[in-house]
Amino acid sequence: MTTVLRYKFELGCVLVLVLAFVLTQIGVNNFFFFAGFAVVQFVMIATAWNILGGYGGYINFGTAGFLGVGSYTAIALIQWSDVSIVPQIIIGALMAGLLGLFIGYFTLRLRGVYFAIATLALAIVLETFVNNWDFVGGAAGISILPPRNPELLGVMIVDRKGAGIFDNNTEFLFFLISAMAIFSVWIARTIERGKLGRGLNAIKDNEEAAECMGVPTLRLKLVATTVSGSLMGAAGAIFPNYLTFVDPLTAFNLEFAINALAMPMIGGTFTWIGPVIGALLLGTVQQIAIVTISSELNLLILGVVLVIFVVAAPHGIVGWFMKKN
């Protein structure tokens, strides 16, 4: 029994994943998976953002840049030789991780608002680059046709006639992003509870004191940007398959950057559950608003909610509850 309790988080992860799988098998309306994908993708993005932003205190405004690199790596791979989705995600994550390491090395000497501005510039520079890269569609964008009957290790994944594990691509992508989001949350929680997380917290509290207390601050921050960036890249690499049409405006949309920092702040930045709660809550509200009111209302909702939380609950929902107890 104690072993079970010890691994209750891991068991919870498995349970959620099983639940996601069961949902795809019982004939739920397909729109649920389409909207659900967007919400779960935000869980992943917010969790990734929080590794650097929440634990380390470095506000990254360049989320869209990392997502875009993931998306366009996937597109380039498809254009190059129809690489399948799993390698797309892995290579997308690697590229975004490398970008994180590179950008981190040059910008992590900047603090506070200067770091934020540098990361914001990153997204814009990358968008301009892709705008001028015809191989991946340039400014006009590109249509991606998901493979009709994808297979993985000889197993048929999607088949409309029921011969595959999933009946359609949306169900498959929903399951895949769920698995990736759970993996991200597991990574974030492992970091948070380990030496790295405690070091990052010390950096957030006082970087100079942390360095003088033996914390290799630059190395820790580089690890954080790399891990955070590669998770964002993975979340971006799956995007072309979901959208089927990608243009730079969508892939590098600033709305991602705003959501990525608003969700952890609303949920609570100091623990892994914060970004998850924030993303599930805000993501769901936004999806409902898109259907019932208008897609343009999203940013307004986000802004209002963020202002309310910054004023009324600066430590987010998690912080609010912890205080109550």
Binding site: R198, N201, D205, A209, C212, M213, G214
Partner: peptide, 30 residues
């Protein structure tokens, strides 16, 4: 610090999100 030099700051710079004990754990762990 790893070589054996540790300092205090003129204006105390505690890790304010941590407890007193956790503050001390950082140099021990690192």
């Amino acid at each position: 610090t790893a070589a054996g030099i540790a300092r205090t700051f003129q204006i105390p710079r505690p890790f304010h999100s941590m407890t007193v004990l956790d503050n001390l754990k950082i140099p021990i762990e690192y």
